[in-house]
Amino acid sequence: MIITKQKELDKILEKLKNRKNIFIVGCAACATKCATGGEDQVQALSVEMSKHGLAILGSMVLDTPCDIRVVKKDLARDDKAQKAESLVLLTCGAGVQAISSVLEDKELVPALDTMFLGTIERLGNFHQFCSLCGDCIIDETGGICPVTRCAKSLVNGPCGGALKGKCEVNSENDCAWITIYDKLKKNKTGIKKYHNIKNNAAVNKPQKVKTR
């Protein structure tokens, strides 16, 4: 799931100064689970903006705003969305850009910042366990990704700065390598294996996948 967080209200309002006919778009997928762009947040933002004297023409929570087909089918054909001058988007960056590719003449105001690919522990509690590096080695690191969970992305072992098992960079996080070590202890050769230099070209931007 894509983790997002809402921009500060003042910053959103600043962008909308003197705008008329505003339309708000939410996301029924990730941003709903994140409680950043679901029905509730769209409503709440709508109320706040009205309080600040902005005229809200309408709103819509798209199933998956990151899907250009959905944007074309549901948003582009909507009367109110068509009439709107500015669209405030409670979606991730993929959603914003799917919308911008379809509604080319609208002013788009992203209201979320896109953070990371998240693993959900419980609602409101998300972890970054994977950084989409395109070169996975977790079969050799006990199912724990050092590229992501070690602050320095060290793939050959720890830096030596852990304090009470916690990362020296952020004491809220477990040292990834101590966690990996505990998991690999049964297999003593595991920890000594040399991990080769990463192929960063695997994720050179912008990427494209075409399977058909």
């Binding site: 720890p158 920890i191 000594k192």
Partner: peptide, 23 residues
């Protein structure tokens, strides 16, 4: 290279020392 002899997990540090020597 560097090593922390006072680190909590000495075995892990020693494994790193060996890896660094090998490298």
């Amino acid at each position: 290279a560097v090593v922390n002899p006072m680190a909590e997990q000495l075995d892990l540090q020693l494994a790193m020392v060996e890896k660094k020597i090998e490298a």
